[in-house]
Simulated assay, not measured.
Amino acid sequence: MAEPTATFDDVLPEALRFRSPAPLVDIGANLTHESFGRDLEAVIQRARAAHVDTLILTGTDREHAEQAVALARQYPGLFATAGVHPHDASGWTPELARAMAALHREPEVVAVGECGLDFNRNFSTPAEQERAFEAQLGLAAESGLPVFIHERDAGRRMLEILHAWRDDLSQAVVHCFTGERDTLYGYRDLDLHIGLTGWLCDERRGHHLRELVREIPLNRLMVETDCPYLLPRNLPAKLKGRRHEPALLPWIVREIAHWRGLDEQALAEATTATAREFFRLPTDAAD
């Protein structure tokens, strides 16, 4: 017998049913991940109940970008990005470039990416990553769309590449920022945006981010879950299955507000205003 589909109420315990005091934009939600296949409708309902009204679905390759666009057409308040993750950079071809350029013309697509450099795992070689990344920066320059950037253990090279391209790009956000102070200040000098996740909520590795969070200009800060990954480790209750989802974004906002010494509602309002401007969202996208 098939397992029953999860419903709205049977995933999050009462202690994890947060509600933001102001609408939120989750700028990085991997809702095309297979773990959301059985209960996507309920996931979106729980997000809205938490006041996470706008979701930017991350397209990390052609297949997932097309799926993200399809979901954005189906559900109000959902939008998509389209790009090739550095892990998959070895597969970059002229045909794939044309497919990405076509996706960037779709009205549901609000950014080029996720693209960038990941020198931590090197599933694709650094040379392959740089080739695919610069090709996608070229597509961003042609389309005028902002760039949704992945960077891990590649801050110095990322800064070098972006210095050469910055004048040709409209805007760019380094999503899921986990770098050090020097890298952050390099991104600030380039007038980039920064996305923060539940990494800040991890007592094992988030300490340096707690010190840096005040040094991110408020008008350059956005928030994201990167779900189903990066579930906050300091949640007030255990979550069965440990799959992260957008409804938990208010907890991350609360944590960021604490370390910034800022009111939670003020942070929610600021990050949402910044995200709506950055992605050029319709005025009613987060209402």
Rank of each mutant, 00 (worst) to 15 (best):
M1T: 03
A2L: 12
E3Y: 05
P4L: 13
P4Q: 07
P4I: 06
T5A: 06
A6F: 11
F8M: 07
V11S: 08
L12S: 11
E14M: 04
A15E: 09
A15K: 02
A22I: 09
D26G: 01
F36Y: 12
A49I: 01
T54S: 13
L57D: 08
T58F: 02
T58I: 03
T60N: 12
R62H: 01
E63P: 01
A65R: 06
E66R: 12
Q67N: 03
V69N: 11
R73C: 04
Q74I: 01
Y75Q: 14
G77D: 09
A82H: 08
G83T: 06
S90E: 00
L96D: 03
A97G: 10
A101V: 05
A101H: 15
L103S: 05
A111Y: 09
G113I: 06
G113V: 02
L117V: 00
F119T: 04
N120Q: 13
F123N: 00
P126R: 01
E130F: 00
F133H: 00
A135T: 06
L137G: 15
L137Q: 07
A141E: 14
A141V: 11
A141K: 03
G144N: 11
V147F: 14
F148G: 02
H150T: 04
H150M: 02
G155Y: 08
L162G: 09
W165Q: 07
W165D: 10
Q171L: 09
Q171G: 04
V173W: 09
V173P: 15
C176W: 10
F177A: 13
T178M: 11
E180R: 15
R181P: 12
Y185R: 13
Y185T: 00
D189K: 13
L192Q: 08
L192V: 07
I194Q: 06
I194L: 13
C201W: 11
R204L: 02
G206Y: 01
H207T: 09
H207A: 09
L209C: 15
R210V: 03
L212R: 09
E215G: 03
I216P: 14
N219H: 14
R220V: 12
D226T: 13
R233Y: 01
N234H: 08
A237T: 04
R243I: 15
A247W: 02
A257R: 12
H258W: 13
W259E: 15
L262I: 02
L262D: 08
D263K: 06
A266S: 12
A268M: 01
A268N: 12
L281W: 07
D284M: 09
A286L: 10
D287G: 13
